[in-house]
C-alpha cells in the first residue's frame, strides 16, 4: 500500500516540480533550500574535496535547462557495502532519536550515534550473525540474484528453452586459444558454494552507485542508489531495502524515476525533510558562533543521509564540526 501512495505522490510531485518556478534568490540561511546555482557551487566544492564524486550529464533528452549542461548531477561509482543493514540494526544502545519538535514521527533516528565504543560489538555481531544472515538475509537475495533479467527468464520455463534455439555453433571464438575462460569456470563452483550458504563464506560485498540530483520541487539535493551484487547484477528493490535503515525503508527511501536517466524507478532518499534538517544544522552552527557556507551543503548533506544508509561506505574526506 505504501508503495502505491508513494508512486501516486511521486507523479503528483513530478507535475508540481514541473510547475514550480526555479528558485532564483538564495534562501539557504532562512530555510535550508538551494538555488540551482548554489547546487552547482556546492557540487564543485564536493568534487574538489572528494575526487570520487564527479559531474555527469545524463541523457541528452533529459538535460534540465536550469543547470549547466555538463553539470546536471553528481555521482560516484562502486561504493562498497559489506554488511546488510539488518545485521547491525537495532543495537538500541547505539541509537539516538534526533528530535525535532515539528516532526510528528519523532525526528531522525541516528543508528550509530554512540558508535565509537561500540565498534568491536558491531564486528562481533556480524560474526555471530553470518550464519543467520546467510540463511535469511542474503540467501533470499540468492534466489533473486538474477534479478530483473535472469530471474524472469528462468521463471518462465518456456523462455529459457527458447534461448537454446539461439545458440550458435561454428564460430571462430569456440576454438580461439587466446581467450581466458578462467573467470567463467571459477564462477560456477562459486555459485554452487553460495547456494549451500555455509556461513563461513567471505562476506558478500555489494556495491552501489550513488547519484545526487537537484530536486526542483523541494529545492534540495536528492540522493539516488543503484545497487549491484558481487556478480555485478542489479539488486532488486527488496534487496536494496536490506541496506536501508529499517526505519527509513519505504518511508524515506522510495522508488521514483530519475530526472536524468530513463528506465524503471530507482531508489532514492526522499528529500521532503532535507531542508528542515539542513536548517536545523545551520541554526546549530550559527548558535555556536560559527557560520556555514552554502558550498559545504553537500558535504553536510552526505553526512546526514548516511543515517539512512549506514552500511554503504562512501568516503568522507572532510570533517564537519557542528560546534
Amino acid at each position: 500500500m505504501q508503495s502505491v501512495i508513494n508512486s501516486v505522490k511521486g507523479t503528483a510531485l513530478e507535475v508540481a516540480g514541473y510547475l514550480t518556478p526555479v528558485l532564483k534568490e538564495s534562501k539557504f540561511q532562512e530555510t535550508g533550500v538551494l538555488t540551482p546555482e548554489e547546487f552547482v557551487a556546492a557540487g564543485e566544492h564536493l568534487v574538489h574535496h572528494c575526487p570520487t564524486w564527479q559531474w555527469a550529464k545524463g541523457e541528452d533528452a533529459k538535460v534540465r535547462s536550469y543547470l549547466p549542461a555538463d553539470k546536471q548531477y553528481l555521482f560516484t561509482r562502486n561504493v562498497p557495502c559489506y554488511r546488510r543493514c539488518k545485521q547491525i540494526e537495532y543495537c538500541e544502545d547505539k541509537e539516538k532519536v534526533i528530535e525535532d519538535e515539528q516532526d510528528a514521527d519523532g525526528g531522525w533516528v541516528d543508528t550509530h550515534h554512540y558508535d565509537n565504543a561500540g565498534l568491536p560489538t558491531v564486528e562481533e555481531k556480524v560474526c555471530e550473525m553470518t550464519l543467520e544472515a546467510a540463511d535469511t538475509g542474503d540467501s533470499d537475495g540468492e534466489g533473486a540474484a538474477g534479478d530483473h533479467e535472469d530471474d524472469e527468464d528462468e521463471d518462465e520455463d518456456g523462455e529459457a528453452e527458447d534461448m537454446e534455439e539461439f545458440q550458435e555453433s561454428g564460430l571462430l571464438d569456440e576454438v580461439d586459444p587466446s581467450t581466458d575462460l578462467a573467470q567463467r569456470k571459477e564462477d560456477k563452483p562459486k555459485s554452487v558454494n553460495k547456494s549451500k550458504s555455509d556461513g563461513d563464506e567471505i562476506i558478500r560485498t555489494r556495491t552501489y552507485d550513488l547519484h545526487i540530483t537537484y530536486d526542483k520541487y523541494y529545492q534540495t539535493p536528492r540522493l539516488w542508489l543503484i545497487g549491484y551484487d558481487e556478480d555485478r547484477t542489479l539488486l532488486s528493490v527488496e534487496q536494496m531495502y536490506e541496506d536501508v535503515s529499517q526505519d527509513h525503508a519505504k518511508k524515506t527511501v522510495t522508488m521514483e524515476s530519475h530526472p536524468h536517466l530513463s528506465g524503471p524507478s530507482m531508489a532514492s532518499v526522499h528529500p521532503c525533510r532535507h531542508a528542515e534538517v539542513m536548517k536545523k544544522i545551520i541554526e546549530t552552527v550559527t548558535e555556536s558562533g560559527g557560520e556555514m557556507g552554502v558550498h559545504s551543503y553537500l558535504i553536510v548533506f552526505l553526512k546526514f543521509v548516511q543515517t539512512v544508509i549506514p552500511t554503504i561506505e562512501y568516503d568522507f574526506t572532510q570533517n564537519f564540526a557542528m560546534n
Binding site: 530483473h148 524472469e152 527468464d153 534461448m163 539461439f166 555453433s169 564460430l171 571464438d173 567463467r184 524503471p264
Partner: peptide, 21 residues
C-alpha cells in the same frame, strides 16, 4: 573473434525481459 558468451557459457544472445518496467 569477440562474440561474448552468454550466462551459460554458450555462444548465444542474452535476453533482457523488461516487461516489469
Amino acid at each position: 573473434v569477440g562474440w561474448e558468451r552468454n550466462d551459460k557459457g554458450n555462444f548465444g544472445p542474452k535476453l533482457a525481459n523488461m516487461s516489469a518496467s
